[in-house]
């Protein structure tokens, strides 16, 4: 009843306070607070098993929270679940389309379930298939679709009628870069048309590309929150990977990189990778990274190759928590519950 005492902020699409969910002894979500502005993309970033999917499943009314409360588009999650369902759509981690039907039938099915007439549902299916580049494949069974096509169909199924709020759970996991760009384009178009999106992802890159705000989630709790720029500033804007010609030079190189890049941030150790000739370190800017590589050359350390990129989720976690996220066993848990 605490929710009733709060004054709902009408500019927020999602307002969650202390959401928690246990599965037996597993405390999947331990108190998540979220405030998502209407019309924005909000990224929830975290490793497998962090509680992202469980959070989305609670907000999409698939499972009831054990504690905490939330309003979605002004409706209470528990007492007004039907009203919530009327304005949201869910694109789950598993690409929730029916593999034994063809693409067109999947969309007609959704159209009919949402209340479109027979003819209207068919027209809508054709329109969406055309727009999403699936017209040719519309008569083929979905089990024969590629991962990217399946994802696009999944997104099309989510907008058979335009939702006010859309939950996207790891929409590009397992996709190649081309298919991933296609999905991103669709997400941008949705936002341009005014849909709010809650995006769960394992990729900082993806959250950076699409989201206006990001919450980093670990072990069922939000451990950092802010704009992508702020988050990256706390982590370092880029990540420098260096592979040396001679593994024997590694300690010299590590010392040099620490001196050039590490001193500014206390939580920024140079990582010695499994490859005995490889090192990685986050850096505040591309320039700083490039200068550090030049300094290696000047000191007589031969570099076989190097790359500058966005920090990975592992690096974000390292910077925020001082450890690399655990993976694997927990991930299965989250998918199956």
């Amino acid at each position: 009843m605490a929710a009733a005492n709060r004054v709902g902020d009408s500019s927020l699409a999602i307002e969650a306070v202390g959401l928690a969910k246990n599965f037996g002894a597993v405390r999947a979500v331990r108190g998540v607070d979220l405030a998502v502005r209407r019309g924005s993309v909000y990224g929830v970033l975290g490793p497998n098993g962090a509680g992202k999917t469980t959070t989305i499943r609670m907000l999409a009314t698939l499972i009831a929270p054990d504690a905490g409360h939330a309003r979605v588009l002004g409706h209470d999650l528990v007492t007004e679940a039907d009203a919530v369902r009327r304005s949201v759509s869910l694109t789950g981690q598993l690409a929730s389309v029916d593999e034994d039907l063809n693409g067109r039938e999947n969309l007609v099915l959704l159209g009919r379930l949402l209340g479109l007439g027979r003819r209207q549902a068919k027209l809508r299916a054709v329109e969406l298939l055309e727009a999403f580049g699936l017209a040719e494949a519309s008569g083929r069974l979905v089990k024969n679709y590629s991962g990217g096509m399946r994802r696009r169909l999944d997104l099309a199924a989510s907008i058979v009628v335009t939702p006010e709020l859309m939950f996207l759970d790891e929409p590009t996991t397992g996709l190649d870069p081309h298919a991933r760009n296609q999905v991103w384009d669709i997400v941008r178009a949705l936002v341009a048309e005014g849909t709010t999106i809650l995006l769960c992802t394992q990729y900082l890159d993806e959250a950076d590309q699409l989201a206006e705000g990001i919450a980093v989630i670990d072990e069922g709790r939000v451990i950092a929150e802010g704009t992508p720029a702020r988050l990256k500033a706390s982590v370092g804007n880029g990540s420098l990977h260096v592979r040396l010609l001679d593994p024997a030079d590694r300690e010299v190189a590590a010392a040099l990189l620490t001196e050039r890049l590490g001193s500014a941030q206390s939580k920024n150790p140079v990582q010695r990778e499994a490859d005995p000739a490889a090192l990685s370190v986050t850096c505040s800017s591309g320039d700083a990274g490039a200068q550090a590589v030049a300094a290696l050359g000047a000191a007589g350390v031969s570099v076989a190759d190097f790359s500058l990129g966005q920090p990975s989720l592992d690096e974000v976690f390292l910077a925020l928590t001082g450890r690399v996220p655990s993976d694997g066993a927990d991930a299965k848990q989250e998918v199956s519950v």
Binding site: A137, V161, D185
Partner: peptide, 21 residues
Amino acid sequence: ETGASPDRAAVRLAISSTPRP
């Protein structure tokens, strides 16, 4: 994989066109 890609203008039109029955 079909060569077809989503067409941005068509996607935006498709998104905006259907009110909830």
